[in-house]
Structures are given as C-alpha cells and as structure tokens.
Design a protein around this nucleic acid. Sequence first.
DNA 1: CACGCCGGAATTGTACACAATCTGGCGTGG
DNA 2: CCACGCCAGATTGTGTACAATTCCGGCGTG
Lengths: 235, 235
Amino acid sequence: MATRRGTTQSAYQQIRRAIVEGRYKPGQRLVEQRIGEEFELSRTPVREALRQLEAEGLVHHEANRGAVVRGVTVEEVADLYDLRARLEGYAAELAALRIEPPELDRLDAGIVAFGAALAATWDDELEQLRAIDAANREVHGAILTGAHHERLARLLERTVDVPLVFQAFRQFDRAQTERSHLFHQLIRDSIAAGDGQRASSLMFEHIMLGRDVLLDHLARIDAGVDDLFSTGQAE
Amino acid sequence: MATRRGTTQSAYQQIRRAIVEGRYKPGQRLVEQRIGEEFELSRTPVREALRQLEAEGLVHHEANRGAVVRGVTVEEVADLYDLRARLEGYAAELAALRIEPPELDRLDAGIVAFGAALAATWDDELEQLRAIDAANREVHGAILTGAHHERLARLLERTVDVPLVFQAFRQFDRAQTERSHLFHQLIRDSIAAGDGQRASSLMFEHIMLGRDVLLDHLARIDAGVDDLFSTGQAE
DNA sequence: CACGCCGGAATTGTACACAATCTGGCGTGG
DNA sequence: CCACGCCAGATTGTGTACAATTCCGGCGTG
C-alpha cells in the first residue's frame, strides 16, 4: 500500500483545525476509524494525532472508550483567560528584555498584517476571520519567540491556545478588534523600549479585555445552546 | 499472543521514571525496539509513551530520527524555575480562595508525611529521597487540587515537573530540606486563612529558594560533567 | 588525496490483523 | 412489569509486517 509520509502531522492539523473552528463540537466522539476514512489514512496516524491533541487538552480520552472533543464551562473560560493573561504578561516582560531585531521585525510585520486584514473587505467573512486570526497569532507568536523561553512558548501555543481564541473574533465587533490592534502597537512600543513592566501590564490588560468580551457573550447566550459553543460537558 | 492491557501506561511510567531519576541521560537515544525489549512489549505502546513524553517536553523527537532524552541548559533551568514560581504562586493564590476541607486535610497529611520522611532514618538513602519527593509532590499536588484550575494543574504536573525537582533533593542538605518543610507550613496557614496574596508570595519564594540551590549547584560543577546532570545538549 | 555517489544496515512511519473491552438490546425469570 | 444476564456489534489496545527514510562506510573518479 501507498504508506505516505507525514500523514500524522497532516491528521493532527486537520483535526485540530476542525476542533478550533468548531466543526467538531464539544462532546462529539472522535472514532479513529471514521476520521481515518474522512482523511483517507489508516487508524495509526489518526491515533497518534489524537494522543497529541489529548496532551494539549483539546480532546478527552478514556481507556477503551476513545476520544471526545472537550468542552469548557464558563468558569473554565474565565480561569483559562486569567492564566493566559499571566503567562503572556510574563512573556511580554521577558520579550522586553530579550527580543532581537529580527524578532521585532516579525512583530511589526504581524501588526501590519493585522491592520491590513482589518481594513480589507473580504468576500468571505470566514476568510477575513482567518486572516485576522493568523495575523493575531503572528503578533503573539513573535512576542513569544522574543521571550526566548521555549517552555513558556510551548505552554501558550499548545495548551492555552484553545478554540476560544479563534471563536473570540466572531464575537469581536469592529471597535473591539481595532482596540486589539491598538494594544498590539502599545505592547510593541513597550517591548521595543525595553520596558518589561509596562509590556507585561499592557499584555495582561489586552488579554483580560478579550476575556471580558467572551464572558459577556457567554453570559448573554447562557442557558441556550449556541451553535458554536456548548458550555456544558464538565469533566 | 498475550496482548496484555495497560502496557502503554506502564511503559510511560517506567520510561518517565528512568528519565526523571537520571538513569536515561540527556542526549541518549531512545530506540523504540530496544526499549520494547527492555520492558518486554512491542513497539506500539512504547511509541505511544514516547509521544506523550514528547508532549511533556521530556524527550525531543525528530521525524524519521527518533527520540532522545532532552537536556536542559543552565539558562533553561533558571527560566523554568521562574516560570514555575509564577504558576505555583498563582495556584497557591487560587487555593487560598477555593480550597475545600478535604483538600486541606490532604495538604496537612502531605506536610506530616514530609516531616516524617525527613525525621526517619532510612537504610537506603535513595528510598528516603523517594519518600521525601513523594511527600513533596503530595503537598504541592494538594495545593494544585485546591486551586480548582484543571489546566493549571496539568501544566504544572506535566510540563514543569521535569527531572529537576527530583534531582534537586539530592542537592538539598538537611537544613535546606527543613526550610522547605517550614515554607510548606507557612503556605498552608496562609491558604487556610484565605490570604491569597501571602500564599502566593510564600510559594513564589519557596520555589525561588529551590531555584537558588539548584543554580548554585550547577554553577559549582559547571564545566565538568556531573553524573546526574549534563547541562549541554542545547536543542 | 578529496570529494561525491552508491548501497546496505538500522530505525522510524504506516498499514493491517487480531484480541480485549465496552455498549446496548433482547430474552428469560422472578 | 422489572431486574438481571447474556450475546452481538462497535471500538479501542496491542502485536506484527512491510515500506520509507536516514545514516554511515566503502568505493570509484577526478
């Protein structure tokens, strides 16, 4: 048989995207066989991908019972964002001390891209969402890289980067997204000036503002079942 | 063939212990076949175990080249402990607000066990080390549970809990271990009193003191190759 | 003598087969 | 009618075979 290479990573990314963008909904079972058919691979790479996703906390896995997409309660969202605010604040603080010119360039490029994605008019709204999301990741990623703290970077990339970040932009109106853009610029300037304290505070506030938007949204839909978010499914 | 169950977890724990206790040294290649023979299993569960360990950052894995035990530089040790101090400080803060009576009991039990392990005279020094390490984990674990923040707990258990913690006790002389015991008690009292600010500060300081011991030790052996620690092996 | 090509051994990546386990429905007995 | 146990289908856990890749050393050529 063909036995193509790199299929595990491919499976990992496809499943991840499906979860992060909400196509695989919380509570949904992820049967290895079925997913294998969907992506035309055998169970083995799918299985490996699921294990990675489990390690990241995106799916929950029980012995002999398989994997399900993990949901989050409103309380968990709040806690998660508190945690993220602290971690990214710390990252910004470190970046202010350690960032190198090329990394700062990358940060600037990300900010420009964010502004461009914000200004452009897209045919497909989902595509614009993806562009903003990508630019946002670039900005935060550049700061993380600039912090030169590998573990911290992995924690933030692979554990705190849950579906919420992407979903969040759906809830952001234009003004809020522009506010994020502004914060990115302020954080950038603090980092460039080597002021770790202010960079940290600004980043903390930036994340907490995002948290507010999300929690506000969740409070509004509250009892009902939103088509993107299911808040049930406690562990 | 026998096809025993639960072998993946068994392989995971055995490999993990070997790394954490330093029997598998940084830089050492972990060949799936060889480890499988060592534990009398096939490659499959070994492979899964290695993927989990990779997700935790204990081993490094490159495509088509396999896994090697990950080493840490002195700089990484310093950064890691800074990070851990912040995360556990936050955990202590949350625990002060959220801990439940049975969790506080568990914390007390851990502290008692730590004191007992410290006081007892063991035949085998390694066994005493393990007992102290186990009690220490119990103390920190109880606080983590009391924080009621699942993600934070996983981050600390599975990402920051690197070989260093166990190794650290080898470097602790009696006075330092007793100091740790004291801090545990102070932290416990702050949590019981609901004072998150002080619990956080004490925990931060507790971790940073451990950091000092380790860094001091690393600085002393510095150039040479210690039989527990190899500080080279940058990514 | 330096350099690059080729080939084989070692190892990982993927596919597949089978065993163990769980789930849900059906039948039997109280 | 309900409780209990049992059987069949579905799904995961593990073992194993084979394909693909990497690594290393020998050999030939300039």
